[in-house]
Design a protein around this nucleic acid. Structure first.
Lengths: 335, 335
DNA sequence: GCCCTTCTTTGGACCGTTCCAGATCTCTCC
DNA sequence: GGAGAGATCTGGAACGGTCCAAAGAAGGGC
């Protein structure tokens, strides 16, 4: 009861296995009646090529590995979507591995990917183990997406311009009249860049004195706690710029619990423009990071690199855009 | 510059390739010094087995295909997590395909999976093309998770008891004193079951007359629109039980826009206990569907089925639990 | 020291494709 | 009718592992 092989098809169609192979790969050098005979045999037997045999022989898998930090972050899914659609168009399939989950399981995911001999690798977001990306990149064409690290030779980087995004958010708040603004900072290089953008703009407007930075993390919980600390301090900010939407939602909750109305008493900006920010009940002003588009660009970079593995690594930044919704407004005149 | 093969390792270690194979597969029949020599050679050459060659020879891939409806639905991710951890423990890796995305691309994902010769298949949630699951199930051990369809011979089903979950939600609302209760219904068998549970409980309490069902869909938008229609009707309900959390959040928004306070003027229950419901700013009363646990159970079923493909299909329902949060309260005495 | 048994180790067939060099067919042209 | 040129088709060697039967080595008993 084994699945039929190319030889079974050949026998049934009365041709050689080589001819079947030619037909299946779309060769023009085959006489129409033979082609028909082969296709009929394929149909009758329900033949499906064996991908393992094919890639063993072709010495490539037509598969790209995607290393993801956390599938629960909606922004990653967005990026993944763009990635998929572009790679699919080039006949590549995508193999997904969630680094957070599997690290918990104690496996180095790049091992799996090298054993599978993926044709390329995309590392999305800040990963638990950047060293693994380095060793993998030495073996297989690699592109880093959605973050600026690790910087490696022969690795392209496709990311948003986080510093610019942070500038947009901060300038929006200042433009509304806010002076005392806080930033809930994230971790890693991305967190660093967004914080830097915030601080630079505040400095440029002579507001360094009324700028506060509170360390949070990438979760709602982190945003909540940071905001509770911020709003409990003596010089309460009138606006908060959060590292990402999740933290922004946490800030929203904290404000609500402390009896502050948003945006009346407190303005709030998130980052990423995930579907969370688009929920009407949250309706968060945020910075659009163009995840889908970034995914497509990362895919194109990878295709280029697969074609020419030795090309020098490039850094491509996409410009983010401010998405103004319902959580920002001018401060009270009193403040 | 090809990656080293088992023969390269054998030559370096001064043994036969068969011995290398034995060592790598952990045989006890190998003398310690030879084992050491082989492992040293592996290390020096940076050898990694070729998964394609291995699975061609072993005639299995140690890979399970997961067909997912929509990665954006947090509940699916939860289930996936459970699935992964259990399968990983059995040495199986997981290959993920988002049906919604790929259908847009016009591909039948089961094709990919049959070409890859996955050892098993898990279909998660209501899929765009149930017929594809049928044909796939004829070739490869298959388990359906998170929904009750399609029912096929030799296919196990692991799902939540949706009717029971709906009963819990409805009884909770009735217990609080609500009489006029609306349900925002979803699509597919799952939607059907939840609606049936709702209607049964209303009937049992003699409340059929004040039960309303409004068709929504699985999105926030659908929940929002359905709620706007419900609240605009003459006999406004005092409580809404939504098909899932997303729809519940839409309902929350609609209530807010119409000037109704939740839970003061309107009680609200969702379904799935996704992280959305856990966001403090939403804090939605919901029905916990135990996604992680369900994923693990689905994995175990699949392992059983791979071991014995002919075993009769079973249906396993997990009991959901009500998770009471901040969106439900007794109605106004006036209502 | 020889035979027998039990460990270890090995060569070679096989898994299902692709690829290539060469065989075979078909035509065209003189 | 035969040569030459394409167009088609084919057999066999990879690809990199696993598996199995059998060879070789080592120890035990007489």
């Amino acid at each position: 009861m084994r699945p039929p092989t190319i030889r079974d098809v050949a026998e049934r169609a009365g041709v050689s296995k080589s001819l079947v192979s030619l037909v299946l790969r779309g060769s023009q050098q085959v006489r129409p009646e033979k082609r028909r005979a082969v296709l009929a045999a394929v149909e009758e037997l329900g033949y499906r090529p064996n991908a393992a045999a094919r890639s063993l022989s072709e010495r490539r898998t037509r598969t790209v590995g995607v290393l993801l930090n956390d599938l629960r972050n909606p922004w990653f899914v967005e990026l993944l979507d763009g990635l998929n659609s572009e790679l699919y168009a080039s006949g590549l399939r995508t193999l997904l591995a969630d680094g957070r989950l599997n690290r918990r399981l104690g496996e180095d995911l790049t091992h799996t990917f090298t054993e599978l001999r993926v044709d390329g690798l995309i590392a999305v977001g800040t990963l638990p183990d950047p060293a693994a990306v380095r060793t993998a990149a030495a073996r297989v064409p690699t592109v880093v997406a959605g973050t600026r690290e690790p910087v490696l030779p022969d690795v392209d980087i496709v990311a948003g311009d986080d510093e610019l995004g942070a500038r947009l958010a901060t300038e929006h708040l200042i433009g509304l009249g806010h002076r005392h603004i806080a930033h809930i900072a994230g971790r890693g290089v991305v967190g660093e860049l967004r914080r830097r953008g915030f601080e630079a703009v505040m400095r440029e407007h002579g507001l360094s004195g009324s700028a506060t930075v509170e360390q949070g993390d990438l979760t709602e919980e982190g945003g909540y706690r940071a905001t509770v600390r911020l709003l409990g301090a003596p010089h309460r900010p009138t606006a908060v710029f959060a590292f990402n939407d999740m933290a922004g939602v946490g800030a929203l909750s904290a404000a609500g619990e402390l009896g502050l109305r948003v945006p009346g008493d407190l303005s709030l900006v998130g980052y990423d423009n995930t579907y969370l920010a688009r929920l009407r009940h949250l309706w968060l002003t945020t910075v659009d990071n163009a995840g889908h588009d970034m995914g497509r660009r990362a895919a194109r970079r990878l295709l280029d690199r697969i074609a020419d593995p030795a090309r020098p690594g490039e850094v491509a930044l996409t410009a983010p855009a401010l998405e103004v919704r319902g959580t920002t407004a001018p401060p009270h005149p009193a403040d």
